[in-house]
Design a protein around this nucleic acid. Structure first.
Length: 645
RNA sequence: GCCUCCAUAGCUCAGCUGGUAGAGCAACUGACUUGUAAUCAGUAGGUCGUUGGUUCGAUUCCGACUGGGGGCUCCA
């Protein structure tokens, strides 16, 4: 008998060779039906693999990420089996589970695979799933493995086997399909009740551009048809919120072939939104002791030679702007830091005036690969809400805390409630690849950790993720659909102060090197607006909304009164418009609803008599009639509610 | 950049296997003067992304270019 420890700490005795399926069965039959795999002493095992020693066992179902992984990994094998039946002679690369499903990389030879083939393969998958073929694990020798795939003629699997150690190789077999695989897998294919292929894409063998490009087939499967339906509905919802679609519909921004790819044009309404965000940040920054600066969009090559960016990015970036003077070259600025360093250097600095915080909404240009461009989230010209803090080493922690406060204030005002912070530290085993002294790094790293802890942030720490020039803290927010986005960033930089020979005179009358902190709570206005659009589905917070109200006169007779109300609201800095088209009120309401206007103010005979407006809130409906003053008060209270705490 | 799919009116899209195009919405004109999610009628609008080729003939087939979507890191 062996002892099995379950997650609740209880210990049960089972005969040697018990499987986790049998353990589940001893708890309940329903559980046994749902167990996909099991974590046995920190390794995930097949649920039908015999356990021969005392072990800690955690049963995994569809509700566990690891359970899903096993499920989707098994689905990849099922896909491969189906593909092999449909396309005999097909060769296979790798087929892992991913965040939402799985894929398999295949080499189809001369054949092609397109959306038209999806249905056929999906059907074949379900047909094979119904056979309830068991996933059978088998340990094989390296020679045996090589023999099998040599005979099959699959050079990709042979390439994989080459790097594996003899004795550690396993095969999995289900139905007529055998794959080189470490596992684990679900008990049999019958668990897979719904399958959908999502898309095809090219992917280099082993991610190496010089190797052959395979066809990557993405799919997703579920243990219930209903879950597939729900998943597809979620995708639909995400599509509806796509910032590229809403940006066009709401006339926020546009692209033009003539202007060039990745270069967004901000339309009037989008500009209003963007300027509101800038205004908001400016105000918060002034309060936090930042000094706004402005720097040019181009700079002499020398600046980037000094900063080191020329050497690192020069060849892959926008190429220099030449002048009539021979040898004179200017670059579009790809970042603001070097300019700010030069501002810092305009005069000697005393320790007493540090920290110096220089802020700029700096528009920068980076030549991103054409395939990397995506809506507003990845563009070639964008504006950072940039600032650089030059401070003494002993001020790093305090400055970090202040920046975190600022970032949290921004998130709160914009309705991002679910966020985590990632602390990126250097790789402790490879300190040589980082610039800056050991002492400085340790100080800065502990300053970041302490600052994050003091602010009560939920953090993930990643070793080796720091930039070569310093550790950093990144904020990841989760939007309304649960998708993760990286927004604000705070980075310590030891590199530029060194390269630019920045210094300050300390109390000891000696020269010291300041620490530079680079931070951007939004990241870039473009990216932030994109994330914001998707987060709120185009229903912006009231204070940001480009059109905060629309006045809808019942008929032409009330146009004058409508204009009076409009003037009053405009006076109070409330933005909106009068819809004086020759349309019925129902039509005007519908159009305003579609345009996502937060407040609709209906004016007719009654309202005119009482100097009132009938208020309708977007998505909520009629709020009844109120005096114009009362509406202004209601409106302003809604705004201060968000911005002042 | 590479793979793959795509490109028709301002927008969303239809147009079977080659014979120069159609709908809805928007726009414009007129009628209606309207009470909480689409009033009715009419008008106008397209070198079918650009450019070569095949063909008697190309929006349709082939190539190139431009732009767009998806993917190119996550252990067999």
């Amino acid at each position: 008998m062996i002892n099995i420890t379950l997650p609740d700490g209880s210990v049960k005795q089972f005969p040697e060779g018990v499987t986790s399926h049998e353990i589940a069965l001893s708890i309940s039959e329903g559980l046994a039906r749902n167990v996909l795999a099991a974590k046995v002493n920190d390794t995930v095992w097949d649920s039908n693999r015999p356990i021969t020693e005392d072990a800690k066992v955690q049963l995994l179902t569809w509700n566990d990420d690891l359970g899903k992984n096993a499920f989707w990994h098994s689905s990849a094998h099922l896909l491969a089996e189906a593909l092999e039946e449909v396309f005999p002679g097909i060769k296979f690369g790798i087929g892992p589970p991913v965040e939402n499903g799985f894929y398999y990389d295949v080499d189809l030879g001369d054949r092609t695979f397109s959306q038209d083939d999806f249905a056929k393969v999906e059907q074949k998958m379900l047909e094979l799933a119904r056979n309830k073929s068991e996933f059978k694990r088998r340990e094989v020798s390296k020679a045996e493995a090589e023999k099998y795939f040599t005979e099959k003629g699959d050079e990709y699997k042979l390439d994989l086997i080459k790097d594996l150690e003899d004795g550690s190789i396993t095969f999995y077999e289900q139905g007529n399909f055998v794959d080189l695989c470490r596992g684990p897998h679900i008990p049999n294919t019958g668990f897979i009740k719904a399958a959908k292929l999502m898309n095809v894409a090219g992917a280099y063998w082993r991610g190496d551009e010089s190797k052959k490009q395979l066809t990557r087939i993405y799919g997703v499967t579920f243990p219930k048809q209903k879950e597939l339906t729900e998943y597809l509905e979620r995708l639909e919802e995400a599509k509806k919120r796509d910032h590229r679609k809403l940006g066009k519909e709401m006339e926020l921004f546009a692209f033009s072939e003539k202007v060039g790819m990745g270069l967004p044009l901000w339309l009037p309404k989008g500009t209003l939104l963007r300027e509101r965000l800038e205004q908001f940040m400016r105000k918060a920054q002034v309060k936090a002791g930042y000094q706004p600066v402005v720097t040019p969009h181009i700079a002499s090559k020398e600046l980037y030679v000094t900063s080191g960016h020329y050497e690192k990015y020069g060849a892959d970036s926008f190429q220099p702007i030449k002048t009539p003077n021979e040898g004179e070259e200017f670059f579009l600025k790809p970042m603001n830091c070097p300019h700010h360093c030069e501002i810092y250097k305009t005069r000697p600095r005393s320790y007493k005036e540090l920290p110096v915080r220089l802020a700029e909404f700096g528009t920068v240009y980076r030549y991103e690969q054409s395939g990397e461009l995506h809506g507003l989230t990845r563009v070639r010209g964008f504006t950072q809400d940039d600032a650089h803090i030059f401070c003494r080493p002993d001020q790093v922690k305090e400055e970090f805390i202040k920046v975190i406060d600022l970032v949290l204030y921004v998130f709160k005002a914009l309705g991002f409630e679910d966020y985590t912070a990632q602390i990126s530290l250097r790789d402790p085993d490879n300190k040589a690849k980082y610039i800056g002294s050991d002492e400085a790094w340790e100080k800065a790293e502990s300053a970041i950790i302490e600052a994050a802890a003091e602010k009560g942030l939920t953090t993930v720490t990643e070793l080796g993720e720091a930039a070569f020039y310093g550790p950093k803290l990144d904020f990841m927010v989760r939007d309304a659909l649960g998708r993760k986005w990286q927004l604000g960033t705070i980075q310590v930089d030891y590199n530029l102060p060194e390269r630019f020979q920045l210094e300050y005179i300390g109390a000891d009358n000696a020269k010291h090197r300041p620490v530079m902190i680079h931070r951007a709570p939004f990241g870039s206005l473009e990216r932030f607006v994109a994330v914001l659009i998707e987060h709120c589905g185009g229903n912006f917070p009231l204070w940001l909304s480009p059109e905060q109200f629309s006045i809808l006169p019942i008929s032409e007779k009330y146009h004058d009164f409508a204009q009076q109300v409009y003037d009053l609201l405009a006076e109070m800095d409330i933005r909106g418009f009068v819809d004086n088209r020759d349309e019925k009120i129902g039509r005007k309401i519908r159009d305003a609803e579609v345009r996502k206007v937060p407040y609709m103010l209906i004016v007719g005979e009654k309202e005119q008599e009482e100097n009132a407006v009938s208020v309708r809130r977007h998505g909520e409906g009629d709020l009844g009639s109120m005096k114009v003053d009362a509406f202004i008060q209601l409106f302003q209270s809604k705004i201060t509610e968000i911005l002042n705490n």
